[in-house]
Amino acid sequence: MSRLTAAGIGVTYDGVPVVVGVDLVVGPGEWVAIIGPNGAGKTSLLRALAGTIAHGGVVAVDGVEVSALPRRAVARRIALVAQRPVLPDGMVVSDYVLLGRTPHLGYLAVESDRDVEIALGALDRLAAGGLASRRLGSLSGGERQRVVLARALAQQADILLLDEPTTSLDVGHAQQVLELVDELRLERRMAVVAAIHDLTLAAQYADRLMLLAGGRVVAEGTPEQVLTEEEVAGFSGAHVSIVRGPGGEVVVVPRRR
């Protein structure tokens, strides 16, 4: 169980700032969704949190600055699921999931039986045990996403960063993936930060939303606070109606002008 703290995160590409002064605290078992239009800086923010790109500001796990830790130690605490993960076609699923054990292994070490067990366990946990001997190139979109999540799970990090985990999935599979993430964060008290472009799904799964526009945080709070018609129109130029579902949940409905 860990708490992720980020303060004053800034990312600059070729002198152009894409993320500016973002502060974020995510506690154990908490889910924060990052929303915002394309190009708002969501992916760059997640990369900065994972430490895979150069950035300004401070990222800390349980008060320890990650920049002071070796890369492997960071990867044992923070797992990142990229927006478009690279899945080598010819690689077998179980070998791919086993890559999640990398941060737990010495530079030249070989996986032990226990590592294999953890990887296969992760696949089973995501109801994907049957895929273990398949090749990555033969998987459907929903299966791919499960396998990628299984790799992150095998990493046994308690902070999970997800970059658009439901892109390219239909509604049913998107829900399945988000349900799985939700179960995992409750079961393992994982802190989850996910960039999600579907506002209704973001509102249904996250405890808090953080609205980014132009690399800055423009609104933050519960879904009810952040998702107002004015706010959505203001940041994305979208015309939407905010209505309430049968359970009182926020539903964002696109409207034709």
């Binding site: 994972a50 430490g51 070796p70 990867a75 044992r76 797992a79 990142l80 690279v86 899945l87």
Partner: peptide, 12 residues
């Protein structure tokens, strides 16, 4: 083989 960015995220 999963790319440089993901390799970095795995601590390599």
């Amino acid at each position: 083989s999963v790319g440089e960015e993901e390799a970095r995220a795995l601590g390599v």
